[in-house]
């Protein structure tokens, strides 16, 4: 169970690393920006989704690079 779930964050978008929640330095500038956009779009979907307990909103391509 992730820390975010354990402390009770209601809506969680998992990202790729502690020092860069909305980035990924391993990507080139354009690809990194596209990744950031994906994360924010997912975050907007999350705030528009009813939840009753800590819920992880996966992002396409989020897992394999995590």
């Amino acid at each position: 169970m992730s820390i975010a779930e354990r402390v009770g964050a209601p809506r969680i978008v998992a990202t790729r690393g502690i020092p860069y929640p909305t980035g990924d330095p391993s990507l080139g500038p354009a690809a990194e920006r596209a990744w950031r956009r994906k994360l924010l779009e997912r975050a907007l979907e999350a705030v528009a989704t009813p939840v009753s307990a800590p819920t992880i909103f996966e992002v396409d391509g989020g897992k394999d690079a995590a």
Binding site: P19, Y20, P21, T22, G23, P25, E32, R33, R36, R37, L39, L40
Partner: peptide, 16 residues
């Protein structure tokens, strides 16, 4: 903070 300081949007995604 190396990566954050290279590009602050990695912490606060203002651009997107």
């Amino acid at each position: 903070t190396v990566w954050a300081n290279e590009d602050p949007h990695r912490i606060v995604p203002l651009d997107v």
